[in-house]
Design a protein around this nucleic acid. Structure first.
Lengths: 203, 203
DNA sequence: CGGATATTTGACGAATCTCAATAGGCGTGG
DNA sequence: CCACGCCTATTGAGATTCGTCAAATATCCG
């Protein structure tokens, strides 16, 4: 680990970074879930993403953070000084390509989210969200279903541009229809993937 | 320019690239305006951005395009082969930092747009849009106001997650209140910048 | 067990959408 | 230069989705 990085553990609801702060650190999530968000002056919140184990926070090359980040449960992070990163980048040019590739992927995700927020119905938003969680879980080597949903209804609502109540009602309706099953431990079973994918796109 | 790039001119409504295509080219807008967008199967459209002279299209390092692009008016582009770019990047490592910086900026823009789509009212969306156009015009050395609005109401609506009618009504109301002035030639005067900025954030 | 917090459910209201009609702009051709 | 037609923008009336406010239920944890 040396002096380039160190491990920190945060209690639930700890603020990791705040929008507008000087971007001194870069983080890698070791354990837990982190919520990224932006605020309007009157308190309205837009969650811009969730980070899971293995995800990076603060890779963008800006001098200030573009959003705030909060630990959802108990969360462990590996923290790097950005100043060290700069010199590291000079020494390892191919690392830059890695970063560019990560930024490109984030950009693709962001654009999918623009489509979701701008044009999808509440139902399509919730389904897209569940499928996304499932896809990412699969990428971490976890089963596609049931999918673990560690964040609150509030956080989901702020991610999807909805209210808590609408998220809750939509989940209830999907459950009643038999499209999903709400299990204990914040897990949701997605019985028919292909059907859900179609529904999430308005088919 | 040699064989690395060439200039092309497109008629209004020409499709430049389509989502999902192999990303063979990278473009730089020389003149005109380009609309970037994603589609749902049933035709719902989300505009993810507008490009003006000087802006790049296709810098992301993905093998396929993440969105489609259409020329709004008559548009000139400078086209580069991506294959050439790859070797260029190997030769000029600092160019990669440029690209990463551009991607970072795009990411910041995208997150602002997430906040807009998810949490702002129609009024705040339209105002934010006009202020954004103004800011970018200023960046190109044009006056902050009046701002030129070359895209259709439809395109604006699809960018803001609204309908044409709501965009039109909102502009009318802003005009009636004296917050903006609709001029001829698709220009809009923004008389009081600071006041509009506050309104765009819900103050 | 009990209080606090999160989620669900209900009734109602409001912002925005949909559908439809009117008005305005612009280019073409007489 | 004006008239026509097409396309875009605006305006209107009513419908709908989703939000707001409030209450009830469930869950978590000390």
């Amino acid at each position: 680990m040396g002096d380039l990085s160190n491990q920190i553990t945060l209690a639930p609801r700890s603020i990791v970074i705040e929008e507008g702060e000087t971007a001194e650190w870069l983080f890698n999530v070791t354990e837990g879930v982190v919520k990224l968000y932006k605020l309007l002056p009157d308190g309205r919140q837009q969650v811009t993403g969730f980070l899971f184990a293995g995800d990076f926070l603060g890779i963008a090359l800006n001098d200030t953070y573009a959003y705030s980040a909060e630990a959802i449960g108990t969360t462990s992070l590996c923290r790097f000084a950005r100043s060290g990163l700069e010199t590291l980048l000079d020494d390892l040019p191919h690392l830059e390509k890695r970063l560019l590739s990560m930024a490109s992927n984030e950009l693709v995700q962001a654009q999918d989210q623009l489509l979701l927020l701008g044009r999808k119905t509440a139902r399509e938003k919730v389904l897209s969200f569940l499928l996304n969680l499932s896809r990412r879980a699969e990428g971490r080597g976890e089963p596609k279903t049931p999918v673990h949903v560690p964040m609150s209804r509030d956080a989901i609502a702020d991610y999807l541009g909805l209210t808590t109540e609408t998220v809750s009602r939509t989940l209830t309706k999907l459950k009643t229809e038999g499209s999903i099953r709400l299990l204990e431990g914040n897990k949701i079973d997605l019985p028919d993937f292909e059907a859900l994918k179609d529904m999430a796109e308005g088919h």
